[in-house]
Design a protein around this nucleic acid. Structure first.
Length: 523
RNA sequence: CGGGGCGUAGCUCAGUUUGGUAGAGCGCUUGCUUUGGGAGCAAGAAGUCGUCGGUUCAAAUCCGGCCGCCCCGACCA
């Protein structure tokens, strides 16, 4: 390899284009290279491939245990919702009517040209659930009679369909997987407390499992869930500095209880409506995971959610050492798997496929596995493994004594997990600003001018600014800059200087504002 | 639903203007060489050119209908 080739090789990234060159395309390429998912032949719907689905299974496993630990139980409700159910809650209809898949027939029959055509029209159309408040409400109405039946704490893991105009793998697909919690309570206070508890569960999960720092906050009137009294959310910053709503928790007041007839007799004998909540996260989290940690060489997985923590890559040569190396690697795998990490055995892949070493290495790099260890005859003789960490350079290796590696593997995974969160936090603070003037606000968010066809460079970030709360003003800002209020933060620890909670003047209108909110461009 | 574009091998695309019997690169299979690393050489498999119809001796190419997808806008976990 001559010098020129070396220079090229050094500059080469596994993912092309890079984040800097074209962020949106980079995102697609990471998913492809990591073998997470692909577009299906069905418009807007994705196929989640085994590596991607294994991440989802880990998300499910952790969240499910958190839901159980907070007193919730799983149940399952129908995919189809009679049209009249959706209609019961006025705001809810308005919010979802435009994106519903509707089932109008229940049979197929050959048409005049031999092609199958729908027949057997339904008396009442069914919609494919875009969310299940209404259908679950009907069950809740039957289940709840007395104050003794409350609180009713239910979660469902399901798929839902929202007929979106434009879709992107994981971030917005027509069909997606999620969990939706639905609870009913005797008092407003209790329902509000539930709403906040689950918001905290999400925030804890995002930060301590996904290593994705989030801002907990309340949505403005304009961004509230259709039918909710208050919508709370967690908002994360992606590497293009845009915000991703990663989870929501809604206090629904008595709106759905009234439309579904969820009533109970209180201790004082008075019949009243229950107070309900709903909360959910979806496969969108995987999009967030990608855009928080992945780099120009592909996916980077936080160890706690990685389908496998370590891959062992045996260096198999035709000099008679092959069997000995494989045996040594199998023993190493077995010893590593004796350790427990985050409540599970350490997950180890031994990749003995008959592939070129470089191919294998790069496949695992792109898939984001936290640790790679190479074991060749020389390592084996010296009793070491050659260790590579995904949070460091691809070529950045160190020789570690085998037993030392086995003994410290859990600590190493913990260190990487913590390191990813720190890195993401540092990124977010580097692109977060307190902004007090309209001029600065505009220049912060203005997209740099570029030639036609060239992707807009990464710009902007999070702005902590005062806002008067007028939905018309929020709309005006959105039209002018493509920026929205991501949330009204609950705590101000993440506000530069910490002074988010003091009153001031709206950055756009100068009108009085009770506190700062977080503005950003959003997914 | 408005405005643009595209359907040719598993993938990315050339070929269409000027009809003449199907191409490239990557990937895949096999062999040899190489290899503590996404290598080289050689051979091979693989496409009724989206679909239906028309014009023609002859259609991927020209004409018409239909279907599907992508991009830009409004909508969005």
């Amino acid at each position: 390899m001559n010098q020129k080739q070396q220079a090229t090789a050094k500059a080469r990234t596994a993912i092309s284009p890079t984040r800097e060159e074209n962020y949106a395309e980079w995102y697609q390429q990471v998913i492809k290279a990591a073998d997470l998912a692909e577009n299906s032949s069905v418009r807007g719907c994705m196929v989640i491939k085994p590596w991607g689905f294994a991440i989802w299974e880990n998300i499910q496993r952790v969240l499910n245990s958190k839901f159980k630990a907070t007193g919730h139980r799983n149940a399952y409700f129908p995919l189809f919702i009679p049209l009249s159910y959706l209609q019961a809650e006025a705001d809810h209809v308005e919010g979802f009517a435009k994106e519903c898949a509707v089932v109008t027939h229940h049979r197929l029959a050959p048409g005049p040209d031999g092609k199958l055509v729908p027949t057997g029209e339904l008396e009442e159309p069914l919609i494919v659930r875009p969310t299940s408040e209404t259908i679950i409400g009907v069950s809740f109405a039957k289940w709840v009679e007395s104050w003794r039946d409350l609180p009713l704490l239910i979660n469902q893991w399901a798929n839902v369909v929202r007929w979106e105009m434009r879709t992107r793998l994981f971030l917005r697909t027509t069909e997606f997987l999620w969990q939706e919690g639905h609870t009913a309570h005797a008092t407003a206070d209790e329902a509000v407390a539930e709403t906040m508890t689950m918001l905290d569960v999400y925030a804890d999960f995002a930060e301590n499992w996904m290593a994705m720092p989030v801002i907990r906050g309340e949505k403005t009137d304009g961004e509230r869930f259709p039918g909710a009294v208050d919508t709370y959310c967690i908002e994360a910053m992606m590497q293009d500095r845009k915000a991703l709503q990663a989870g929501t928790s809604h206090f629904l007041g008595q709106n759905f209880a009234k439309s579904s007839g969820i009533q109970f007799t209180a201790q004082d004998g008075v019949l009243q409506h229950a107070w309900t909540t709903s909360w959910g996260v979806s496969t969108r989290l995987i999009g967030g995971l990608i855009m928080t940690h992945a780099d120009d060489d592909g996916l980077v997985l936080p160890p706690k959610l990685a389908p496998a923590h370590i891959v062992i890559l045996p260096i198999l040569r035709d000099d008679g050492s092959k069997d000995a190396v494989l045996t040594w690697c199998r023993a190493l795998k077995a010893d590593l798997e004796k350790h427990v990490y985050d409540g599970q055995c350490v997950q180890v892949e031994l990749d003995d496929r008959d592939l070129r070493g470089g191919d294998k290495t790069w496949q695992w790099v792109k898939r984001g596995i936290p640790l790679r260890v190479e074991v060749g005859p020389r390592d084996m003789e010296a009793g070491v493994v050659t260790l590579f960490r995904r949070d460091r350079g691809v070529k950045d290796k160190q020789a570690v004594a085998r037993d030392e590696f086995v003994g410290e593997v859990v600590a190493l995974l913990d260190e990487m997990q913590a390191g990813l969160l720190d890195r993401a936090r540092a990124f977010r603070s580097a692109h977060t600003r307190v902004i007090n003037t309209k001029a600065e606000f505009e220049s912060y968010f203005a997209a740099p001018a570029v030639a036609e066809g060239v992707p807009t460079p990464i710009h902007g970030g999070f702005a902590w600014s005062h806002f008067c709360g007028d939905p018309a003003v929020e709309e005006e800002i959105k039209d002018a800059l493509g920026v929205t209020v991501r949330c009204i933060p609950i705590d101000d620890a993440d506000c530069p200087g910490g002074a988010g909670g003091t009153p001031g003047e709206c950055v756009w209108t100068g009108r009085p504002s009770p506190r700062r909110v977080v503005f950003a461009k959003a997914y």
